[in-house]
Design a protein around this nucleic acid. Structure first.
Lengths: 214, 214
DNA sequence: CCTACCGATCGGTAGG
DNA sequence: CCTACCGATCGGTAGG
């Protein structure tokens, strides 16, 4: 009875709640947030369903906590180091390249957590969909901010539309995620990287090209 | 008892099996193929669960039949009229523009059926994932064939990589679907259309531009 | 954090 | 195509 047979070590400093959310996040990136079951999660953690449940009070709260945790992971993996790059085109490029590396490194076992759950909830109104939309919007806004910073620094050719540019850049990275996962397309990440590189080259003014070379 | 209170008229020529699959297809485009429940479907059709079940023998067979039906709808909405356009760049463009119109017209209530279920099954190995991958691969192959036809007709500039081009074009159309649905982004379809147009302009040789103008 | 339980629903079956 | 049922599992609760 006293012997807790666990494959998952308790991770001294880590609270039970954090352990739960951590596992939930990784499960959800593969199977989705909806089919995430409290019973399965409890089994995986070697605790009782109701013990786990007590930490959240409802499945929805667990799902929301999971999204927030995933946002932190995304911030660490993709955004943090990109903010070391200078504002404008260099930082825009760093964000996109970091995103592609985040796919390559399988930070989540099911690819991009947010692409997965966004597709799952895009037609299911409610708090979960709203929370996911906020996360996606944040990411979109970071990219658009940098495109606008690039414009202010004259790093973009005069006729370039910043929103159109960001739309195209996001498209490459999302396509990389789906092509790679469904079609086992090993070339997809490279194609996305190439697409990002040549699109940025296309839109960069002389000042922009100089900034990208630095 | 004899009065069958039904909002869904039997559609004289349509078999029960077809009616089931038709509803399943529309439901799945919004909620996914996995959470599709035989009980819900039966309720929607005003028949018993087991009566519906007997048409398929397992949930998996129902799901596979649903994917096949969706492929037919896609073929009608997107491919058929595109094949009236001349091979090469004109047909490539027609495919992409038809796809964007298919999103606009909400042929499926949840946007693109295949984008939805591809995201759902990309990490769930099995017959359903395999069937979806076949559908996606077909679509990909149609686009690549036309890019190669364009190359043979000298419609592409010499340095253009056909696979890279197709990757970028697919990316625009998929991004349109997701931006529009999750972020209620009314501009997404227009941005995708513009991206397709300018990418095709970029890669077209003199002969290619002539073909697109015809 | 636990055991023990709830009503509802799941896919699927028996038998007609 | 139906009724009537199966075992399993769901989210959630009572009570400790």
């Amino acid at each position: 009875m006293a012997i807790a047979a666990k494959s998952m070590r308790p991770m001294p400093g880590e609270s039970t709640r954090n352990r739960i959310v951590h596992i939930a996040m990784n499960l959800a990136s593969r199977e989705g947030l909806e089919s995430l079951s409290i019973g399965d999660l409890a089994k995986e953690l070697g605790m009782s369903k109701s013990g786990l449940f007590a930490h959240f009070g409802s499945k929805e709260e667990l799902q929301l906590a999971t999204i927030e945790a995933a946002e932190k992971v995304f911030g660490h993996a993709v955004l943090e180091s990109a903010f070391a790059a200078p504002e404008g085109l260099p930082r825009l490029r760093a964000c996109l390249e970091n995103y592609i590396r985040y796919l390559e490194d399988c930070i989540f076992p099911g690819g991009c957590f947010f692409s997965a759950v966004a597709a799952e909830y895009d037609d299911r109104p409610g708090r979960i969909r709203d929370r996911i939309a906020i996360s996606m919007r944040k990411w979109s806004d970071v990219l658009l901010e940098q495109a606008k910073a690039a414009r202010e620094r004259d790093e973009l050719k005069p006729d370039v539309d910043e929103e159109q540019l960001v739309f195209e850049l996001k498209a490459y990275t999302h396509e990389a995620n789906f092509s790679r996962r469904l079609l086992d397309d090993g070339l997809a990440l490279g194609q996305a990287l190439k697409a990002v590189g040549s699109r940025l080259d296309d839109v960069a003014s002389r000042a922009g090209r100089a900034a990208l070379r630095r």
